[in-house]
């Protein structure tokens, strides 16, 4: 029984980590390639979820809803890159934080204006609702299993894109020396718009996937944004591989911490104290992990020195 529970929690941690990867992949690319801190990344996540909920309500198709989330977030990403973000590349980080924070407020209130203050309904497709029985007799929600598979597929796709394609070479070159690749005739402006839209699309996709099992509401992106920043700092800024490893680390640490810490404290404390101490410590655990990684690897696990 306990082994089963532990394996189920491992799967939960994996699923959470994969979600975080979708969110942080775009963030780390934008930070790494363009040197831009984008606080509005969480808003793109929210846009994806709202677009999916609206399309699912209109058409009843979850697949169309997912495509809408990709399209809407990519479009919103490209649009803000062309109109606002583009002007921030040469500014210092404080200006970027200020401007993208303003974008959060604009997107949040704009969404409230369009959709109202009450959460929207977005449900998992009927084919994936309910649990499946895995080998060993573990009951696990089919939808979460799908998220894990989809997330891993996206991760493989991202590796291939970065390491095997011409665009990927340009992105890596842009990270290393952006003046040089501009001098070599690469249209850096177009590349930046592409990278930004790609990151936005992934965030929107994550929002739609998660929206189906959580609540689609204004402000849903900000808590995830904080975790995504933790992930990219742990993984090393600009590294897709780092984002992947960091996301899985954070996902597993958070899930297993929430599960194991209260039980561990129960061995030495009385039950109610164990629950409150364990819960409190569990919510700090990923930040402790981040601090620990930064002590030994100040640039993150895969950061370039």
């Amino acid at each position: 029984m306990t082994t089963l529970l532990f394996i189920e929690q491992l799967l939960n941690g994996l699923q959470f980590g994969v979600m975080l990867f979708l969110m942080s992949a775009g963030l780390t690319l934008v930070f790494g390639v363009m040197g831009l801190i984008n606080l509005a990344h969480g808003s793109l996540y929210m846009i994806g979820a709202f677009a999916a909920a609206a399309v699912a309500a209109a058409t009843g198709s979850f697949l169309l809803a997912l495509m809408a989330s990709l399209a809407a977030a990519a479009l919103a990403g490209a649009l803000i890159e062309l109109t606002i973000i583009r002007r921030l590349y040469d500014r210092d980080h404080l200006d970027q934080v200020l401007a993208t924070f303003a974008l959060i407020l604009i997107f949040s209130e704009g969404t409230r204006w369009l959709f109202g203050s009450f959460p929207l309904f977005l449900d998992v497709p009927a084919a994936l609702s309910g649990p499946v029985t895995l080998p060993g007799g573990i009951q696990y929600p089919a939808y979460r299993l799908t998220i894990i598979l989809v997330g891993l597929a996206v991760a493989v796709g991202m590796f291939a894109l970065i390491n095997r394609t011409r665009v990927g070479i340009r992105i890596r070159a842009g990270e290393a020396d952006r003046e040089m690749i501009a001098a070599l005739g690469v249209d850096i402006a177009k590349l930046y718009t592409f990278v930004f839209a790609l990151g936005a699309a992934l965030a929107g996709f994550a929002g739609a996937l998660v929206g189906a099992i959580q609540s689609v509401q204004v402000g849903m992106g900000e808590p995830v944004l904080i975790l995504a920043f933790v992930v990219i700092v742990i993984g090393g800024i600009g590294s897709i591989k780092g984002a992947f490893v960091g996301a899985l680390l954070v996902g597993l640490t958070d899930t297993l911490g929430r599960f194991l810490l209260p039980q561990m404290f129960a061995l030495i404390l009385e039950p109610s104290a164990a629950v409150s101490v364990g819960s409190a410590l569990a919510s700090m655990l990923i930040y402790i992990l981040m601090a620990g990684v930064l002590i030994f690897r100040p640039r993150g696990l895969y950061g370039v020195a």
Partner: peptide, 12 residues
């Protein structure tokens, strides 16, 4: 927003 870990504990 994610209660997978808690729900697994409820199950067990």
């Amino acid at each position: 927003t994610d209660y997978a870990a808690e729900i697994a504990q409820i199950r067990a």
